[in-house]
Lab assay of single mutants.
Amino acid sequence: MDPFVVLVLCLSCLLLLSIWRQSSGRGKLPPGPTPLPVIGNILQIDIKDVSKSLTNLSKIYGPVFTLYFGLERMVVLHGYEVVKEALIDLGEEFSGRGHFPLAERANRGFGIVFSNGKRWKEIRRFSLMTLRNFGMGKRSIEDRVQEEARCLVEELRKTKASPCDPTFILGCAPCNVICSIIFQKRFDYKDQQFLNLMEKLNENIRIVSTPWIQICNNFPTIIDYFPGTHNKLLKNLAFMESDILEKVKEHQESMDINNPRDFIDCFLIKMEKEKQNQQSEFTIENLVITAADLLGAGTETTSTTLRYALLLLLKHPEVTAKVQEEIERVIGRNRSPCMQDRGHMPYTDAVVHEVQRYIDLIPTSLPHAVTCDVKFRNYLIPKGTTILTSLTSVLHDNKEFPNPEMFDPRHFLDEGGNFKKSNYFMPFSAGKRICVGEGLARMELFLFLTFILQNFNLKSLIDPKDLDTTPVVNGFASVPPFYQLCFIPV
């Protein structure tokens, strides 16, 4: 058959498939802009700032609406009420993970971030239990974070109060905490193996944040037939998995079943207990991918939040002064901060919360999916439909947070200066898919920041009023603009 005829037939089939998918069930789905064949609503979305586009569309179609990214149908949730109703009140029905062709290629359905069903539930339950087990290797997770915080302070001392970009050092600290939990080992910041790991993690975040990856996920045929950065992403992930597998083999040879040292040991012990169960989800494949998931999810998000926190503290020296006064009063100079201190430091706690609220790190979270046909607000959402959640619409709700575009710790303080919780605080998402490392991340943010401010004054290279804190939105995360500062020993 003539190649031209084959091409026309293929394009015609794709067009018909697109029209059929977009028209099927439209009477039951939430409203939304009319999609174009094949490309859907992509032309109506700013790929570099999806969150802003969703906010604009919500003003037209309401808090629940339908979009098509290519052939992929998505239902968008915008605003606290619908997000709570879906992710919390109907948590089980909305607990699936959205379709990610690239991740599915890399992870093969294993791990904790992109798995679904029984596998996801069992691996998540085990990971939560293990991360909360403060007795691994007779050292609590808090001990590990405190140790890394001391190392971080010593690295900052080496800058000798000269101007520096904190990106690298602030990236090393949370990565080392995860390494300590998974591998029972922290690395020197100049260790070549550690630097290679950091390089792969950072490069992957840069790649994932590009519009090209959005295109690959919406048109998965590209993955096999086109060159691009997605190939580098898959190569980096394969490198990390190979490295983790080597460490798993080392653990198998040296493990003491009665004295687990780290996450890998705990997983291997669980595998041993379930070795007679042919349906067990505790396999080497799941261990390797879960460890890679924890490394990827637990490094860049925390380091970016820390980097943004220091920029905001530079911009608002009056806030920094209040935090340091609270540190001096509650902790002093002669001991290290600990998590028990947080309950006695409402202002510092409010500042950490406000940093996370203000920066809105992951504006749309990772997409969910419905696990069955769901009736939601008089609409029928078919099983498997991807759910896109606007966390921006919750964290920047102007009824809950007056002047949401302003950095103001009073958003989390009552009139008496006591810490005030808010149900709208969802930087880790909400419901059954809430970030498994939430507790660890909150511990790291509090301890790293208090250790830094206990030991250093922060000095800006320019007038604080002239510092730009506008986030650089890159399609996946909101990151701070480049800046330098000086760490002046107190």
Rank of each mutant, 00 (worst) to 15 (best):
V5P: 11
C10A: 14
I19W: 11
I19S: 10
R26M: 09
K28T: 12
P31V: 05
P31T: 05
T34Q: 12
P35L: 01
G40H: 01
N41Y: 00
I47Y: 09
T55I: 08
K59D: 09
G62T: 00
E72H: 14
R73V: 06
V75C: 06
E92C: 12
F94W: 02
S95M: 08
G96A: 13
G98Q: 13
G98M: 11
F100I: 13
E104S: 11
A106S: 14
G109F: 04
V113F: 06
F114C: 07
N116G: 08
R124V: 00
F126D: 01
L152E: 01
L152I: 10
E154G: 10
K160S: 11
C164H: 09
D165R: 02
P166G: 04
T167C: 11
I169D: 03
I169C: 06
K185S: 14
D191M: 03
L197G: 03
R206Q: 14
I207V: 07
V208Q: 15
C216D: 05
N217V: 08
G228C: 05
L234E: 05
A238G: 09
S242L: 12
V248S: 03
Q252I: 14
D265Q: 02
L268T: 03
Q276S: 14
I284Y: 09
I289D: 04
A297L: 06
G298L: 02
H316E: 06
K322F: 08
Q324H: 09
R342N: 06
G343N: 12
H344E: 15
V352N: 02
V352L: 12
V355S: 03
R357Q: 01
P363I: 02
P363Y: 02
T364G: 08
A369C: 11
T371H: 07
K375A: 10
R377K: 13
R377M: 07
T389L: 14
S393N: 02
F401S: 00
N403K: 10
D414L: 05
F419H: 05
N423E: 15
P427S: 07
S429L: 03
K432I: 07
K432E: 13
I434L: 13
L449W: 02
T450I: 07
T450C: 08
S460V: 07
L467R: 05
N474A: 11
